[in-house]
C-alpha cells in the first residue's frame, strides 16, 4: 500500500471561511473534507494517511514560514505522493497548492499533483515544475477534478508508464521528449494531412506549439570611453589544447582566459574548437573572433576605458537554449562582480 498526504486550505479543511484564513499550518492523521472522496478514489492501491491544513492568508503572507513548517511536519512521515486541492478558481489557494507541491517535491523527491482552473494564477507560476490538472471554476467540479487527480496519482504511485501530457490530461510542463506514434504515422502523411486541413480551414494540431520567445529589452547605451569592457564569445576560441574541455557542439561548459598580458591572440597558441563553422580563418587569426588586437589599440587611443583582464568563451552550436541561458547568467554574474560595464558578445 502506497501512502499519500493531502493539502487543503482552511475552507476545505473545515476550519472556517475567510475569517479563518490566517489559520496556521497543521497536520492531522487521516482525511478531512474532500480527502474522503480522494481516499475512496485512490483505494485500494493508495491510502491518504495525513492531511495538512493551512489558511490561505497565512500561506500568502508568510509563504516561507508556512512552507518550512509544513516541510518540518512531513519530515518523519513516510509517503509516496503529495496531493493538493483541487483549488478551482481560488487564486490564493491555487498559488498555495502550487508552492507547497513544488517545495514538497523538491525536498522529498515525491511526485506532487494538484488541480486548478487554467486561469488560476497558480497555474502560470507552477505548471512547469509539478503536475497540474485543469479544473473547474468552483467546487461544483469537485468530483470530476478529484477523479482526474486520483486516477493519475494512482498511476504515479504504482509506477505505471506515463504518457505525454495530452494523454494523461495534466497541463503540459514544457518538457519535450521523443515519442513513437502508435500505430505508426509517417511524417510525410502527417505533414500533407495537416496542410490539407489548414487549406480547408479545418482545425489541426501542430506538433510543436510555439513557445513565447524571451526577448530582453536592449539596454541603454554606455559611454565606451569610460567603460570597462569585456569580450564574451560563443565562437569557441580557447588556448591550444582546450584545457577546459569545452565541447565542440552542444556545449555545457564555458571558459575564462587571462589576456591581461597579451596584445593579441597568436595563431598556434589559440584555436577554435567550434564544430559549426569552417575554422580556417579563425585558426589563422583568432583575433577575428576575440578582437583583442583591435581593442588594445582602442585602449591605447583612449577610445575605451579599459579591457577586462579575462575573456569568456563557450561554443554556440547545437547548444540548447536552457544551457545557453544558464551559461549567460553565470558569465554575466562574474562580469557584474568585476564591475564590467559593457561586453562585446561575439557570435559566429
Amino acid at each position: 500500500m502506497k501512502r499519500a498526504i493531502h493539502y487543503l486550505n482552511q475552507f476545505f479543511g473545515q476550519i472556517g471561511g475567510e475569517e479563518k484564513a490566517d489559520h496556521e499550518p497543521e497536520i492531522r492523521e487521516g482525511v478531512v473534507g474532500p480527502g474522503i472522496l480522494l481516499n475512496n478514489l485512490l483505494a485500494p492501491e493508495v491510502e491518504v494517511t495525513h492531511t495538512v491544513i493551512c489558511g490561505d492568508n497565512f500561506f500568502g503572507s508568510h509563504k516561507e514560514e508556512a512552507i518550512e513548517r509544513i516541510l518540518n511536519d512531513l519530515k518523519d512521515k513516510p509517503f509516496d505522493l503529495f496531493i493538493a486541492g483541487p483549488a478551482f478558481m481560488a487564486g490564493r489557494y491555487g498559488v498555495a497548492c502550487g508552492a507547497i507541491c513544488e517545495a514538497v517535491q523538491e525536498q522529498f523527491g515525491v511526485p506532487a499533483v494538484t488541480s486548478m482552473h487554467e486561469e488560476n494564477p497558480g497555474k502560470e507560476l507552477y505548471y512547469k515544475s509539478i503536475y497540474i490538472f485543469p479544473g473547474g471554476n468552483s467546487a461544483v467540479a469537485m468530483r470530476k477534478d478529484m477523479a482526474a487527480i486520483a486516477s493519475f496519482a494512482k498511476k504515479l504511485a504504482t509506477g505505471q508508464p506515463l504518457g505525454p501530457a495530452r494523454e494523461e490530461g495534466y497541463i503540459p510542463r514544457g518538457i519535450r521528449h521523443e515519442a513513437f506514434i502508435d500505430p505508426p504515422r509517417l511524417g510525410a502523411d502527417r505533414a500533407v494531412e495537416m496542410l490539407l486541413k489548414k487549406l480547408k480551414g479545418e482545425p489541426y494540431q501542430t506538433e510543436m506549439p510555439m513557445p513565447k520567445g524571451d526577448r530582453p529589452a536592449i539596454a541603454p547605451a554606455v559611454k565606451v570611453e569610460e567603460a570597462k569592457l569585456a569580450i564574451v564569445t560563443s565562437g569557441g576560441i580557447v588556448p591550444k589544447g582546450n584545457p577546459d574541455r569545452i565541447q565542440s557542439a552542444s556545449a555545457t561548459k564555458w571558459g575564462k582566459y587571462d589576456i591581461s598580458n597579451l596584445d593579441r591572440l597568436n595563431a598556434g597558441e589559440w584555436e577554435t574548437i567550434h564544430a559549426g563553422f569552417d575554422p580556417t580563418f579563425a585558426n589563422q587569426n583568432p583575433n577575428v573572433i576575440v578582437p583583442l588586437d583591435a581593442l588594445r589599440a582602442y585602449e591605447r587611443e583612449n577610445k575605451i576605458g579599459q579591457l577586462h583582464p579575462y575573456y569568456y568563451c563557450t561554443v554556440g552550436t547545437g547548444t540548447t537554449q536552457a544551457e545557453a541561458s544558464r551559461m549567460g547568467r553565470e558569465i554575466a554574474q562574474e562580469l557584474l562582480e568585476a564591475q564590467v560595464s559593457a561586453a562585446i558578445l561575439v557570435s559566429t
Binding site: R166, R173, L186, D189
Partner: peptide
C-alpha cells in the same frame, strides 16, 4: 529524424 517524412518518430510534451 527523417525530415523528408519517412519515420513515425515525433516529439511530445510531458
Amino acid at each position: 529524424d527523417g525530415v523528408t517524412g519517412d519515420h513515425y518518430k515525433t516529439v511530445v510534451e510531458y
